[in-house]
């Protein structure tokens, strides 16, 4: 079946933003230059209605990324066939440039916690997760990106450093990595590990997207709220990462305490400057 229109690809030298309902009107009115728009897949699982109509409208002007928060890739339960079917239906309708999920679990024994929970990192869990990634890729007929999550705890039974675990999922399944620089920084701060070592473990060729977001410092640790501006330390780590990887489509996420569109666009412009500088440096070097 021919595509109704070409699938737009994100511009790696520009940032994208998360598409959120309060910004629909403003975004449609101003149509700012953005690399891509990313949505939480589950928010478009409806049979019809305005959200899907808006997304189809934006789809004509922007590359779209479907970012799932509920597939529970790392759960010991079987994959939720109904959830996967809804995702497949949405992907068929929207023809997204990117489809991503989290390397985490969020349900067990039919109990839904609706939160991105960390995995123990061991060879057996790695094999389990790889099998699930293959299952999803087979069902969707495309490769997906998997994202490293933020975590507040680590399991005593973990035997593989997180960066190696993520890299190995990509190597074994052919999936890409959605490298969340904020999550890498938060985990290092929470667990006393090295964010740079984490990023260094990932094969640059597998990184298909980068996430940036803001968090919150609490007495018990850093929390990944997606409800504030990006931390200065995370901007620094992002610049280092881009220097290593070259420009990669980068998303600024802001999901709670959603600010006016201009605030979000200003964050995206800051990422743009870092991406463009690196793209320029590479052109000069070539």
């Amino acid at each position: 079946m021919p595509a109704r229109f070409a699938v737009r690809a994100p511009d790696p030298a520009k940032a994208g933003i998360g598409l959120r309902t309060p910004h629909f009107e403003a975004l449609a009115g101003s149509r700012p230059a953005l690399s891509f728009l990313e949505v939480h897949s589950e928010n478009y699982f409806a049979d019809g209605g305005p959200s899907l109509a808006w997304l189809e409208r934006f789809r004509a002007d922007y590359a779209v990324s479907l970012h799932g928060v509920g597939l529970s890739l790392g759960s010991a339960d079987p994959l939720d066939a109904a959830h996967l079917s809804r995702l497949a239906r949405l992907a068929e309708r929207i023809e997204p440039a990117l489809v991503s999920e989290h390397l985490c679990w969020s349900s067990i024994g039919g109990r839904h916690l609706n939160e991105l929970l960390p995995l123990p990192y061991s060879e057996e869990v790695l094999e389990h997760v790889c099998g699930r990634v293959r299952e999803v890729q087979d069902r969707l007929g495309r490769t997906i990106l998997v994202e490293n999550v933020s975590s507040y705890v680590q399991f005593a039974s973990s035997t593989i450093p997180e960066g190696e675990f993520v890299a190995e999922v990509a190597r074994r399944t052919g999936c890409g990595v959605l490298l969340d620089v904020n999550n890498a920084w938060i985990n290092a701060a929470n667990h006393g590990t090295d964010a740079r070592a984490f990023i260094a473990a990932i094969d640059p060729a597998t990184v298909g997207e980068i996430h940036l977001a803001g968090g919150e410092a609490t007495p018990a640790g850093f929390v990944d709220t997606h409800g504030a501006a990006v931390f200065p330390e995370v901007w620094a780590l992002f610049a280092e990462t881009i220097a290593r990887l070259g420009p990669v489509p980068t998303l600024v996420e802001w999901d709670t305490n959603i600010p006016p569109l201009e605030v979000l666009l200003a964050e995206a412009a800051r990422a743009d400057a870092i991406l463009a500088a690196q793209a320029g440096a590479r052109r000069v070097a070539a």
């Binding site: 916690l113 939160e115 705890v153 680590q154 005593a156 609490t218 929390v223």
Partner: peptide, 28 residues
């Protein structure tokens, strides 16, 4: 908390962060 790495008291408080997040997601 014994199945988690690091100080058990801190791990317990960290588990409470997840509890808070789950309840906030549901209420939201």
């Amino acid at each position: 908390a014994r199945r988690l790495a690091g100080d058990p008291g801190l791990a317990q408080r960290r588990l409470a962060l997840y509890r808070d997040a789950i309840l906030a997601n549901r209420a939201g």
